[in-house]
Design a protein around this nucleic acid. Structure first.
Length: 215
DNA sequence: ATCCCGAGGG
DNA sequence: CCCTCTGGAT
């Protein structure tokens, strides 16, 4: 019974956010699942604009998982580093592409349990890719933004990302998982910020146990 | 000067 | 659980 109340509240929260941003804008927009995967791996450590600068160069030179998987690490590092920074991600994108080419025929699998076997890919990245590239609701994206927002709103008491995801999945209908993840990320990034949350501008303020009383 | 993403490893 | 990676943001 208490559970249904929590579900109702979670749905209300997501509905509010959906009203605000019905169609969450995605900074990284790749139709190709492999390209989105690589971009998402890179994005974990950098800014979206920077990733959008690097990837055209990267994919022109190594257009397929097999090509990138067979690339020399120094060359990929050079491209990545010359365009921006995060040279340490070169190894990860090569390794993930290599395994994709060798074990999955160059196609990102549709099963998250298989996706997370790729080096450098865990649930967060896998959920982003499956949701955005295939429209598969494999779970709810949980990054630091979603973690913080969910905790503040009292949607979860957990600190572990896997447990938080389990809570969110239990509270929301599956057909909302992909969108809710996007919305929570954006809300955390622009409104429910770690430092100075903009509670006065927050559409969820009246539902939030953590809202700043004065801010 | 300090904090920080997300993944992997100890 | 804690630590590292790397350079940008604050």
């Amino acid at each position: 019974m208490a559970e249904s109340l929590r579900e109702a509240r979670a749905r209300q929260i997501d509905a509010r956010l959906a009203e605000l941003t019905p169609d969450p804008k995605v900074e990284l927009d790749f139709e190709d699942a492999w390209q989105l995967l690589i971009a998402t791996i890179l994005a974990a450590q950098s800014t979206d604009k920077l990733v959008n600068t690097v990837t055209p160069v990267l994919f022109r030179r190594w257009p397929t998982p097999a090509a990138l998987g067979a690339a020399a690490q120094e060359e990929v590092e050079e491209v990545v580093h010359s365009t921006g920074f995060f040279r340490n991600k070169a190894k990860a994108v090569i390794a993930a592409s290599k395994k994709l080419a060798e074990d999955f025929g160059g196609v990102v699998p549709r099963d998250i349990d298989e996706v997370v076997t790729l080096p450098g890919v865990a649930r967060k990245t896998a959920n982003v890719v499956l949701g955005s590239a295939y429209g598969i609701a494999s779970g709810v994206v949980v990054d630091t933004h979603v973690t913080r927002v969910s905790q503040r709103l009292g949607l979860t008491a957990e600190t572990n990302a896997v447990k938080i995801e389990r809570d969110l999945c239990a509270l929301l209908p599956r057909d909302r998982w992909i969108g809710a993840g996007h919305r929570l990320v954006l809300h955390g990034r622009y409104v429910c910020k770690a430092k100075k949350p903009l509670c006065t501008e927050c559409v969820l303020a009246d539902l939030c146990p953590s809202r700043a009383s004065d801010a």
